[in-house]
Amino acid sequence: MANKQSAIDKSKPVTLGFFALMKLGMSKNAEWPDTEVFLDWIYWSRQIVGFFLGIIWGIIPLTGIIGLASFALASSGYVYLYCSYMNIDDEEHGGIWEIIKEGFMTNFASFLVTWIIIYSCLHFDDNLAVKL
C-alpha cells in the first residue's frame, strides 16, 4: 500500500508553483518529474531573460536588424547553454530544436515591448516630435 502512494501517477500532469519551478531549474542534475515541467522552466526562464535583454538593448541602444538578430542569438544560445551545462538529455524532451523553440514567440513579444519602452524613454528626442 505504501508503494502505491509513493509512486508517481504518470496519468496526472505534475504542476509546480513558480518559485518551486525556479528552484528546481537552478539545481544541477535536477530530476524533472515530467517533460512539461522542464518545458515550463524553459518558458519562464526565457521570459525573465527576454525582459532583461529588452532593458539592456534599450539602454545600449541597439536598433534594427542588429538588435533583433542579436536577441534571437542570445535567447536561443541561453537555452542551448543551459541544457549543455545542466546535462539535460535533449532526446528525452523531443530534441534540442524542440527545447530551443519552446516559448520563443512569447519571449520575443515581451522582449520587444520592453526594448521599445526603454529605448523610447531614454533616447527619444522631443525636438523630433511633430507639434500640432
Rank of each mutant, 00 (worst) to 15 (best):
M1A: 15
M1Y: 11
A2G: 09
K4R: 12
Q5I: 12
S6V: 14
S6W: 11
I8C: 01
S11W: 05
S11R: 14
S11H: 10
K12G: 04
K12C: 06
K12V: 15
P13Y: 09
P13G: 02
P13H: 11
V14F: 10
L16Q: 07
L16E: 02
L16C: 07
G17Q: 05
F18Q: 03
A20W: 02
A20K: 14
A20I: 05
M22S: 05
G25N: 06
G25M: 08
K28L: 14
K28I: 14
N29I: 04
E31D: 15
E31Q: 13
T35Y: 07
E36C: 06
V37D: 04
F38H: 06
L39A: 08
L39Y: 10
L39T: 12
W41R: 00
W41C: 07
W44K: 09
S45M: 13
R46V: 01
R46T: 13
G50R: 01
G50F: 03
F52K: 02
F52V: 06
F52R: 03
F52N: 03
L53R: 04
G54H: 02
G54F: 04
G54W: 03
W57P: 03
W57H: 15
W57I: 03
G58T: 06
G58K: 02
I60W: 03
L62R: 06
T63R: 13
G64Y: 04
G64E: 08
G64N: 07
I65N: 13
I65A: 14
A69H: 06
A74E: 01
S76T: 12
G77E: 06
Y78V: 03
Y78N: 10
V79L: 10
V79M: 11
Y80R: 05
Y80W: 14
L81W: 12
L81F: 14
Y82S: 04
Y82E: 00
C83N: 11
S84I: 10
S84Y: 13
M86C: 01
M86T: 09
M86N: 09
N87F: 10
N87T: 10
N87L: 10
I88N: 02
D89T: 05
D90Y: 10
D90K: 09
E91I: 07
E92W: 11
E92R: 15
H93K: 10
H93T: 05
G94D: 05
G94E: 07
G95N: 02
G95H: 06
I96H: 01
I96G: 01
W97G: 08
E98T: 15
E98N: 15
I99A: 08
K101R: 15
K101T: 15
E102H: 11
G103R: 00
F104H: 04
F104W: 10
N107F: 00
F108R: 00
F108T: 03
A109N: 00
S110N: 11
F111S: 02
F111N: 01
L112I: 12
T114G: 01
T114N: 00
T114D: 00
T114V: 09
W115L: 08
I116K: 06
I116Q: 11
I118C: 00
S120V: 02
C121Q: 06
F124W: 12
F124T: 14
D125G: 04
N127G: 11
L128C: 02
L128Y: 08
A129L: 14
V130R: 00
